[in-house]
Amino acid sequence: MAHTLTEYKGEKPGIKFLGFDIRQFLAGKYRTGKNTNGKLLGFKTNITPSKEKQKVHYQKIAKVIESHKAAPQAGLIKHLNPIIRGWAKYYATVVSKDTYSNLDHLIYQKLIAWAKRRHPHKNSQWVVNKYWKTIGDNNWVFATKQEGETTLRLLSHKDTPIVPHVKVKGESSPYDGNLVYWSSRMGQ
């Protein structure tokens, strides 16, 4: 079944659909949603990545890290970046900021363990200086120098911009003849 109505195990009622968790929460008049006529609804709809999909994604990343125990840092980064980029872009249209931060923290912990395992006789400061670099304003980037002085860095979930879906304006329809509106909308 693609979606289920959950009201068990202490969870609030909602729907899980295509990896998204869709729930509605009561909201005051300044934070509430509105219908198409501008009338206040009294609730706010919140769509987030489901806990199950977060867990599956983290387990996939952990499996890649575990299978690359002896691989060079560049090889690990090249295997992880497509996984992180794809998952983060899929959930970039919903409320994902906290989810992205949590996943980045868990991956950081996995990478620290990976790096310390590779150098058991070195102290933590040495390990951090070897594998984490400062790039721009970010002091904790898992990165390495490659040939030609290019830096190969691990992508971060939180660096993916959250771009919410833009609702169709008022009574607009693809069949109303407003080609400028629809072509600019489709271009985005």
Score class of each variant (00 low, 15 high):
43 F>N: 08
123 N>S: 07
130 K>H: 15
35 N>P: 00
47 I>M: 05
80 L>N: 08
114 W>D: 06
25 F>K: 01
88 A>I: 01
21 D>T: 02
39 K>G: 09
26 L>I: 08
28 G>W: 03
157 H>T: 01
113 A>K: 15
4 T>G: 11
70 A>W: 12
73 Q>F: 01
111 L>V: 01
31 R>E: 03
181 Y>N: 06
185 R>M: 12
72 P>A: 14
134 T>M: 13
185 R>E: 13
20 F>S: 03
163 V>K: 12
76 L>M: 12
83 I>Y: 01
6 T>P: 05
71 A>Y: 04
136 G>E: 02
49 P>R: 00
181 Y>P: 03
107 I>P: 02
133 K>P: 10
176 D>H: 11
157 H>C: 04
164 P>H: 02
27 A>R: 02
90 Y>K: 05
113 A>R: 14
102 N>I: 09
127 V>W: 09
14 G>E: 11
75 G>W: 07
135 I>E: 10
48 T>R: 05
23 R>H: 03
41 L>N: 07
175 Y>S: 08
79 H>W: 11
54 Q>C: 06
101 S>G: 08
2 A>D: 05
150 T>R: 08
37 N>I: 12
10 G>K: 12
161 P>L: 07
7 E>G: 07
135 I>M: 03
54 Q>A: 10
115 A>D: 05
159 D>F: 05
98 D>N: 04
